[in-house]
Design a protein around this nucleic acid. Sequence first.
DNA 1: AAGTGGTCTAGACCACTGT
DNA 2: CAGTGGTCTAGACCACTTT
Lengths: 235, 235
Amino acid sequence: MNAVVKPLYELVKNHVLGRIRSGELKPGARVESEYELVRALKVSRMTANRALRELVQSGVLARVPGSGTFVADLRSAAHPLQIRNIAAEIQGRGHVHRARVMLKELVKCPAEIARLLGLSDGLAFHSLIVHHENEAPLQVEERFVNPFVAPDYMSVDFTRTTPHEYLMAVAPLERVEHVVRAMAPNPTVASLLQLELSEPVLLIERTTWSQELPASFACLYHAGSRFELRGVFSI
Amino acid sequence: MNAVVKPLYELVKNHVLGRIRSGELKPGARVESEYELVRALKVSRMTANRALRELVQSGVLARVPGSGTFVADLRSAAHPLQIRNIAAEIQGRGHVHRARVMLKELVKCPAEIARLLGLSDGLAFHSLIVHHENEAPLQVEERFVNPFVAPDYMSVDFTRTTPHEYLMAVAPLERVEHVVRAMAPNPTVASLLQLELSEPVLLIERTTWSQELPASFACLYHAGSRFELRGVFSI
DNA sequence: AAGTGGTCTAGACCACTGT
DNA sequence: CAGTGGTCTAGACCACTTT
């Protein structure tokens, strides 16, 4: 096993995250000041500062100069610019990612998707996975994969590797296309995300190309109340 | 007035970004080491380190311990959230765009927005416009504008020029930040979009910077059933 | 061996908030 | 006024990659 030596600022982050996870600190509650962390954890102020700054960056905390640091209203954020995978996203927030594999099969897929993936026989790998953040369902990922691009897809353990990670490894992405929309969930998605049918869902449809071939088509469903997309442009 | 003093690490980031934007540094190219930046820009190593670390975080650079810092390969040619002009969008589909100006006023804006726009007195221009496609409401645009960036905002005829067009004309964009989410509409938005309260809405919150200043904050509401965001990445 | 990134410290000055 | 966050410095030690 790897005896992982965590950086000090990670320990500081975990100290704060622990108090939030345990319920001791609710959204809006005040967090220790940098000097309090310095005294309590015997770290330098720069280390405490980095820990708090990164927790702000990942959306866990909010800071008000001259006033204090507070627990942010819990809402997930993702970065469409970096095509990150959901597991890294969740772990970056210091939370636990768990994937539940609901389906993993070879199917004759709908005609529209067969056409999108350029499959003459319509046969594609199909997976349905629910990604959890701290045991709360965050994303339902339904994916159709081109067998010619990723022939070993069925033998991957998706509780350890996300489909996205696997696809990136076997066939580097050339092109990604996204469609984002707001919609009401269908009963299956609502149930998997533990939502009422009236609660809006943010859907990202993602098509990827690799080796000059359409590689996969994914529908990523998220609870509107627990997920947001963030992006930055700079010129 | 707003005498903006940029943090040193921002200047370091801009130094590197400038060399990338100009084309001097291509993806894969080596960037100055931390010590080189220390010597060249007369900053401390911690400052150079923070600048480079944040550029890694935003996907611009990649670092290899023991080796060096490099321009990241995966650059998005287009953003999922393209800077779109709703009027051009609609006209591009061969349809008729019409804007109804519901509000155009100078207001004391909410504290959070005043902070975002860097307004000490909290006074900002405020507009509320409904954009129609062939007489059907497509987007509700609520916008707060920094008077220091666009002092003539109140005299613009928004039935002829969109706020976005006007802002682009008077002050070229430097940076845009987006947050996208799915939500249920509030009664005002539902009524303006002619929606049931149960129909999901796609909200884009957009903050723009110009001339080194926060220029505007906009909430763009769209009927989930009539609007989607599209984007492409290429490598 | 020299260079590089990763981390950490113990100070410092500033602007702002709250009392 | 004391407390807070925001930034910055000039050192330091370490593990790693490159030469």
